[in-house]
Design a protein around this nucleic acid. Structure first.
Lengths: 190, 190
DNA sequence: CATCGACGAGACTTTAGCGTCTCATTCAGG
DNA sequence: CCTGAATGAGACGCTAAAGTCTCGTCGATG
């Protein structure tokens, strides 16, 4: 039971915080159908809960990265798998909008920077495969991917797109952009 | 003087809140080199300050939209001008990360939805000009543009890119995506 | 010089939310 | 049936921050 309760609290916290970034522990406890005291039995403090939640998101991303590295034959394919995995797990990340406090947690900040740096390395690798345009700064490529993933998660959360649809669209947009000016001319030979 | 003070408070609030989404009125007052009481002389409450700040951002966007409509010969060009104007004014928008409270302000929500709907209309217009790929849902196009603008503002704020550079990259990415797969073959005739 | 409005400083009250603690209840295992 | 661990309910104290109020100062204006 203990584990189930802890999990239920984390789940509720993720959901509630993604809807209302400043939700109180009261609201989270209610959402989790749990007494507020129980939240403190499982987590040291509000910061501890946030930290656990962030740790979960980081672990999930790491897992997706490992799977992608195992399955993909090219860096480009790995980038695609990771991107789509993160969009799929988007609900686990939306709470981060609110989590300015997490910038005070060295562990979390470090893990986040590590993942960003891994992403940058992966982007470099895809660049060597000829996937990424050589004239784009890596910082911008990483930022764009981040922004598009965020947009996709938002669109899914708002019910504007389905998860699978969003996963496909993110990758298409990364690869080809939004305009007809290039990609589609290749494909459709207009 | 009254106007200058009010403006200084708004400026400080935008800056402080973009760095720390949960900044107190104390911090904002200090940043504005103003007594905390003076903040209340100019704004009814914290919510009032936030609302004024949001109103400012909305007005700035409307202004950019009007200018773009006046200057641009095509919808595509208008979309470019608006996108780049918003990136240029990005500092006025970053505080919105923190402003979950604003969802309770009908005026602001309505104005935001109106702007999003105007953007959607503009996207439709560029689609008729053959700019946007016909197979992409408008909701996704709007969301992507939003995401890329957000990414650009973040990159500028973090010092990773210059403003002009970010403005160009956003538009390039919207138009051509990140990959070599289409656009660059057109341009460089590889 | 007198006046008046804007301001800074800071005391004060109130409220929301965090974190602690206690106690009764429930439920599973022996 | 007995025991102990996990929980729910809720009281309690504490702090940060919002919002109010007063008073003294400064500076522009007549």
């Amino acid at each position: 039971m203990a584990l189930a309760t802890r999990e239920r609290i984390l789940e509720a916290a993720g959901g509630t915080l993604s809807r209302n970034p400043n939700a109180s522990l009261d609201q989270i406890a209610v959402e989790a159908r749990v007494g507020r005291a129980t939240v403190f039995r499982h987590f040291e403090s509000r910061a501890g809960l946030l930290k656990a939640l962030a740790g979960r998101a980081i672990a999930e991303t790491d897992r997706a990265t490992r799977l992608a590295a195992a399955d993909a034959r090219t860096a480009t394919d790995a980038l695609r798998l990771i991107t789509q995995a993160v969009v799929g797990a988007g609900e686990s990340f939306r709470f981060l909008d609110s989590a300015a406090e997490l910038y005070d947690e060295p562990e979390i900040v470090e893990a986040y920077q590590r993942q960003m740096s891994e992403l940058a390395d992966l982007v470099e690798a895809t660049r060597r495969e000829g996937f990424i345009r050589p004239d784009l700064p890596t910082a911008w490529v990483v930022a764009s991917i981040d922004g598009l993933i965020w947009a996709a998660c938002r669109a899914v959360g708002d019910g504007e797109l389905g998860v699978v649809q969003a996963q496909d669209l993110v990758w298409e947009t990364i690869a080809d952009g939004l305009s007809t000016e290039g990609a589609r001319e290749d494909r459709d030979a207009e």
